[in-house]
Design a binder for these strands. Sequence first.
DNA 1: CGTGTTTGACCCGCGC
DNA 2: GCGCGGGTCAAACACG
Length: 221
Amino acid sequence: METYQMFFPCSSSANYPNPNSTNTDHHHMGSSNVYTNNFDGRVDQTSDGLLRLRSKSKTENHVGSSSGEVLVHKDGHPHQQYYQQYYPSANASMNNIVVGADQSSVDPHRANNNYSEKKNKGEKKMKKPKYAFQTRSQVDVLDDGYRWRKYGQKAVKANKFPRSYYRCTYQGCNVKKQVQRLNKDEGIVVTTYEGTHTHPIDKPSDNFEHILSQMQIYTPY
DNA sequence: CGTGTTTGACCCGCGC
DNA sequence: GCGCGGGTCAAACACG
C-alpha cells in the first residue's frame, strides 16, 4: 500500500474538531465510510485536489450496477482497489469520508459518454474522469464550495430514491455531479463528480477542495 | 429581475 | 425494430 502525497491530519475515523464552527447549519453529517474503486490503478491528483482514477476500457468499468447499488464496494471485485481516507470536515460536520473514484460509477452504460460532446460521429468519445464518494448525511447535496445548478432528476430503477443531476454554474466550467441516496442505506448519499473545475472555488475558506487536498490516500500496492 | 428548481419530453445506447 | 434505462434539454415556475 502506498501513500500518496495528500496529507491528512486525522488518522482515525473519530471525532475531529470542526474547524468551521460558523457553518453548523443544515448539514448534519455523521461519520462516513467511503470506499473507492478504480480499475487500472492509476491515480492522479487533479488541480482541484480531487483524485482522478482512470480506467482503460468500458468493460473494465463495469463495477457498479445499473440497479443503483453502491457503485463502490469495499471488497470483492477483482479490479477494485480502494482507498480509505479521512478528513476533518467538509463543511459542517463531515467527520470522515472515503472517497471513491470511478469512471463507470453510476451508469455503466454511459460511463464514457458525454452527451453534449459526442456530436461528431467520427470522433472518439471523450472520456471524462469521474470521482465518486459516499457520505452519511441527512442532506443530499453537500456544500463543496462550488455553485451548482440542478438540470435534471431521474428515478433510478430498483431504487426508491431519485438521482439528481447538477452542473457547475461557473461560466465555461462544465463540471457535473450526480447525487443519489442509496437504497440499501438511505443515510448514505453517493456523489459523483465528472470533470474538473476550471476556476477557483466560489466559496473560499473551509471548502471541499481544501479538505480533499489534505486527504491521505492509500492503495493496496 | 436574476438565479435556481421542477418536470415532461426528448435523445441515445444497449439488449432482446 | 422496439422497449428500457439513463442522461439532458428547456419551458415553466418559484424565490429572494
